[in-house]
Design a protein around this nucleic acid. Structure first.
Length: 1043
RNA sequence: GCCCGGGUGGUGGAAUGGUAGACACGCAGGACUUAAAAUCCUGUGACCGUAGAGGUCGUACGGGUUCGAGUCCCGUCCCGGGCACCA
């Protein structure tokens, strides 16, 4: 009886649903295991084959853990707020909630197809008011807390207010805005309500703040960096400007140190941790004040991470925009400096980047005074110092910093070594921290570790500077001028933000007429009619905050909601959180390395401070699945210059080779001639042009007449029409050459518009002749475009195709991200329909390591399908019967089974799913060779396969006579005894080269092995009479003889 | 420029410092078949060769450590990702 996934898969999917097989109840008697996938954004394109990669791997883990006696939480939900639905709403007027609902239904259908063990009773959606109720609630907690540095945690703002009333902010160590003034209790108590609120905003963990955004006036909205290309919006190409706007901000910087330290306690990939470290960008350094010679009132503040090299500072560099440049420049240097500043201003960021190696600068003529040794060092300006970073001033240490070295070398400034370990300073800077200091005053002879504290102590004691920690991390902007996101639970009174009452949550997203900003540039929510907050029903209505939360709000805490998804009184009950604690294994794409994965850690640290999260880090272990990339097909659209090249290469060259003397000059290029083509021995000229440019044709015609030339006009479109038969064009040229007429032009308007050129032909022409365009991969088989179907597409309307010699049109391909816009999305449904879900699951795993990105390719899926059929045939005879026997298995059969148990168990644990599939294939091949029909072998084998191919496993499990689900079976236990063999085959090497194999009793001692090996012919032959220096036996592994 | 990954047959990929290329695809040959498909069997890194003997070379390149290196160390090149005059 055949293996028929189409029949068995729907059957068991229905059975699991009816049996509620995957429902996770609240019985907390078992040990727990929480495995989590990053939830998807339900896009309109549906699920593609890249999505399930991580889901399948985690489903295998979930099922495996369940078979090993764990209570497994394996949930799924949707990150369902987001821009694409809003964009769609703008275009169609369909409410994002409606289109999102449809998309989710589609996703669900596709997910169900693949047979995941998700507990759908726990599904969450970030756009569901019952969910965003708690997103808003957490926002309120952030608003009501500040970060206290002494307590090293978040504390309530109410405690802060009590403190201000008693003692102002003196002695308070808390994270706050840089410009927060010192004030006393009296100051505080004399302030108005509004002033007090304004002061508190400087401390709150979320607060409105003026920040720069990419404002697009034409679209009335703010764009992210990647929506801006070359200063205009990617969509529509409208101008974008930097604009200061009031935005909600999250004081993530308060947690910078803890986010950094927390990385040490979690099992995440090094590259993700490294990216987060770089994003946080902690640098321990010092700020140092340099006096300026002859300017007692001027001080240059410098931040350095290498204060230990300060004695080697032989000059100073200011950014050209630095505020002191004007004052410090001496009259003698004025002209040079002014010119340099002017030049630097004219250069764009891009210019500065592309000429990173070119050293430019100007001397101000002023001198700075080194606070340690009083040395006077010249002050330069140079554009390698940026005004926007740090203080815009650098103490230049050419011996230790390459850019400083480059500058010093080109301006003939001294390079003073500061460490005895520095080398080759004549050729390059040496940033080493090794060795002991020289030429360095008070730190001479010390090491790096000793020098730093001593220098900082001196700076602080003399008021010349201080040790300082600087972060690259900035507070996170939390506002979006958009509709489809969580409303911020805030109303505005007297220009100050206030939280709405907790029992008014959730603040529901109101209906609006259009999903666009208002005419005055306010966010879409300003369109909501009568949307006001009444803190007192009788009082006035206050305006709500009109921006919404960003995409990362809901995803920053959703993993708690799965633990207790229907709770109406808390985001998650303490009891549920105490059981499930943290995610044991989190799986998702690395593109979220610093966005979601850093913000969610921040929220979790905050919730931990409030006693609401059970652990500091919510995800113990994280694996990044690689992307499944798409294989895009591209077509080449001919540009104007193609037709000229085509005419020259394909028509004129062969034509004149046959036609005789009328040679076209080799330099037929347009620049050297008024016409595209002109002949030496004939007064005919040829012009290639689009029929849309009729005015150009007229101009050329007049010019040709004046020159006494006869003109042949060939239309691009005409050439496109006849592109596959160049003799038609050749004929026209011949007729024109032989004719007496002065002007030749086709009378009919050509049919074709654009021309697309087969990939293999494009190689003959220069690459700028073509524009590359994506074409739907469904129109393409083995890179050959289906012309019949393609010509129905709008993009190919009125198009011609230049075919290759076989009369086919081949496409170019590129491997890139799978996305709807690239027309390279492969839908898992088609695969499932053809091969079944089990096969699809196993094939995705078989492709290679989960972590590695690779293009989707179905080559090889037949191998997996063949395996499943063979596996099936071990259990089910041709007549559909053939139940396994209860005979005792042979040693060979047991060995094969237990070898597989060992390998698969190990490999699942180390997330090596591709090799698991190989082991199943090996087991199946061996059992088939042994004609195994023993229950004692076949039953455990089904359990092993169950996490990977649950449908076929369930079917066979029931055929074996069980009534309950294979999901509740017990994972087979490895018995090492069965793996032991009587003999071991040792490879024998001589001087590391393999010379033969020898079979030895497993119990043989190394001495016995040596005796036996030395007796072998092949050994004696290869010794070449050399004396044996050393005889190495690695037990169970290998023998190596050193001669 | 800096940081992090990665370079293994025709292809996807295996390989705790211990027989490089498991498993699969593809390809070639064979069986079955009127034929094809499907299925099954055999072979398949390159080169030399006496061709089912035997040998040489092979994990991007050049060195090194080791009895033994795809694996560890140093240098170079290439590809991918991230950051980018970040002091």
């Amino acid at each position: 009886m055949e293996y028929t996934p189409r029949e068995i898969e729907p059957k068991w999917q229905a059975w699991w649903k009816a049996q509620r097989t995957y429902q996770v109840n609240n019985d907390h008697s078992k040990p727990k295991f929480y495995i989590l996938n990053m939830f998807p954004y339900p896009s309109g394109a549906g699920l593609h084959v890249g999505h399930p990669l991580g889901y399948i791997a985690s489903d295998i883990i979930a099922r495996y853990k369940r078979l090993n006696g764990f209570k497994v939480l394996n949930p799924m939900g949707y990150d369902s707020f987001g821009l694409p639905a809003e964009q769609y709403a703008i275009q169609t007027g369909i409410h994002p909630a409606v289109s999102t609902e449809q998309n989710i239904a589609r996703y669900r259908e596709q997910l169900d197809n693949i047979g995941f063990s998700f507990d759908w009773d726990r599904e969450v959606r970030t756009s569901d008011p019952a969910f965003y109720h708690w997103t808003q609630w957490i926002f309120m907690q952030l608003f009501q807390h500040y970060y206290d540095l002494d307590a090293a945690k978040a504390l309530p703002v109410s405690a802060l207010v009590a403190r201000f009333e008693q003692q102002g902010n003196t002695g308070l160590r808390a994270v706050c805005d840089e410009d927060t003034p010192a004030f006393t209790a009296a100051d505080w108590n004399n302030r108005t309500e509004k002033e007090q609120q304004a002061m508190l905003l400087k401390y709150r963990l979320t607060f409105p703040e003026e920040s720069y955004v990419n404002w697009c006036p034409a679209m009335g909205t703010v764009l992210s960096n990647d929506e801006v290309k070359d200063g205009v919006s990617e969509r529509g190409g409208y101008p974008v400007e930097r604009k200061l706007m009031k935005q909600w901000s999250m004081r993530i910087t308060a947690y910078a140190d803890r986010l950094l330290a927390g990385l040490d306690e979690i099992e995440w990939s090094d590259s993700i941790k490294e990216q987060q470290r770089n994003w946080i960008g902690r640098s321990q350094g010092a700020s140092v004040k340099f006096a300026v010679d002859g300017h007692p009132d001027a001080v240059i503040d410098v931040f350095t991470t290498r204060v230990d090299t300060i004695y080697g500072a032989t000059f100073m560099v200011l950014a050209p925009e630095h505020e002191l440049v004007e004052r410090l420049t001496t009259p003698a240097q004025r002209a040079e400096v002014d010119a340099y500043v002017k030049w630097a201003k004219s250069r764009s960021e891009l210019d500065r980047m592309s000429e990173a190696k070119k050293v430019t600068g100007a001397n101000t003529g002023a001198f700075a005074v080194n606070p340690f040794n009083g040395a006077k060092i010249p002050i330069f300006i140079a554009d390698y110092v940026l005004a926007g970073y740090g203080t815009g001033a650098v103490m230049a240490v050419p011996s230790g910093d390459q850019r400083d070295w480059n500058f010093a070398t080109s301006f003939n400034l001294p390079v003073t070594p500061v460490l005895d370990a520095q080398q080759n300073l004549g050729e390059v800077a040496d940033p080493t921290k090794e060795g002991r200091y020289i030429n360095s005053g008070m730190i001479n002879g010390l090491t790096y570790e000793q020098a730093i504290p001593k220098l900082i102590e001196y700076l602080e004691a003399n008021g010349l500077g201080k040790g300082k920690v600087q972060y690259k991390l900035r507070n996170a902007v939390f506002s979006r001028q958009r509709y489809w996101g969580e409303p911020v639970p805030v109303y505005w009174k007297d220009d100050m933000p206030y939280l709405i009452a907790e029992n008014d949550l959730p603040l529901i997203l109101p209906a609006i007429d259009k999903y666009l900003p208002t005419e005055t540039g306010e966010p879409p929510l300003a369109r909501a009619e009568g949307w006001k907050y009444y803190s007192d029903p009788a009082g006035p209505g206050y305006e709500y905050e009109l921006s919404t939360m960003p995409g990362w709000a809901g995803s920053s805490w959703y993993f708690y909601r799965y633990m207790d998804p229907h709770n109406h009184s808390a985001f998650c009950s303490k009891e549920a959180a105490a059981y499930w604690k943290a995610v044991d294994w989190y799986i998702g794409g690395s593109e979220h390395a610093v966005g979601h994965l850093l913000y969610s850690r921040f929220w979790n640290h905050f919730l931990f401070d409030l006693g609401l999260a059970p652990e500091r880090e919510y995800a113990k272990k994280l694996t990044n699945q690689g992307m499944i990339q798409g294989r895009s097909s591209l077509v080449f659209r001919a540009k104007e210059c193609f037709y000229e090249e085509y005419l020259w290469i394909k028509v004129l060259q062969p034509f004149f080779a046959a036609y005789g003397p009328m040679q076209i000059p080799a330099s037929k290029v347009e620049e050297s001639y008024t016409y595209d083509f002109a002949f030496e021995t004939n007064d005919l000229v040829i012009e290639v042009v689009s029929w849309k440019q009729t005015d150009k044709i007229e101009v050329i015609r007049k010019a040709a007449e004046a020159d006494g030339k006869r003109l042949l006009v060939l239309f691009n479109e005409e050439l496109a029409d006849h592109i596959n038969q160049h003799d038609i064009t050749a004929d026209r040229i011949r007729q024109a050459l032989e004719s007496r007429d002065r002007f030749f032009m086709t009378e009919e308007r050509p049919k074709s518009g654009q021309l697309f050129v087969s990939h293999d032909l494009t190689l003959k022409y220069s690459p700028d002749c073509f524009a590359k365009l994506h074409v739907d991969i469904n129109m393409v088989t083995d890179d050959v475009l289906d012309l019949q179907r393609a010509s129905q597409l709008p993009m190919f309307q009125h198009s011609g195709f230049k075919l290759n010699a076989e009369g086919r049109f081949t496409c170019h391909f590129e491997v890139e991200k799978m996305s709807k816009s690239k027309f390279n999305v492969v839908n898992p449904d088609d695969m499932v329909a053809q091969y079944g879900a089990d096969c699809f699951r196993m094939y995705e795993m078989f492709l290679g390591p989960i972590e590695v990105s690779k293009p989707w390719d179905t080559k090889g899926i037949t191998g997996v399908y063949g395996f499943l059929r063979k596996f099936w045939s071990l259990y089910v005879g041709e007549d559909g019967q053939g139940l396994p026997t209860n005979e005792a298995p042979a040693a060979e059969e047991l060995r094969a089974l237990h070898w597989c148990i060992k390998k698969v168990t190990d490999d699942i644990e180390r997330f090596s799913m591709n090799t698991c599939v190989s082991h199943f294939m090996i087991l199946t091949n061996e059992l088939r060779a042994l004609k195994c029909d023993k229950r004692a072998i076949l039953e455990p084998a089904v359990i092993l396969l169950a996490p990977f191919a649950p449908h076929v496993a369930e079917e066979l499990w029931h055929r074996l006579g069980y009534e309950s689900s294979v999901c509740d079976a017990v994972w087979p236990v490895l018995n090492e005894e069965y793996l032991k063999a009587d003999t071991i085959t040792y490879p024998v090497q001589i001087n590391g080269k393999l010379r033969g194999n020898i079979e030895v009793a497993a119990a043989a001692t190394p001495a016995e092995i040596e005796t036996l090996v030395m007796q072998q012919d092949f050994v004696q032959r290869n010794l070449n009479d050399g004396a044996v220096k050393k005889f190495i036996v690695v037990p169970g592994r290998i023998v190596n003889i050193v001669v």
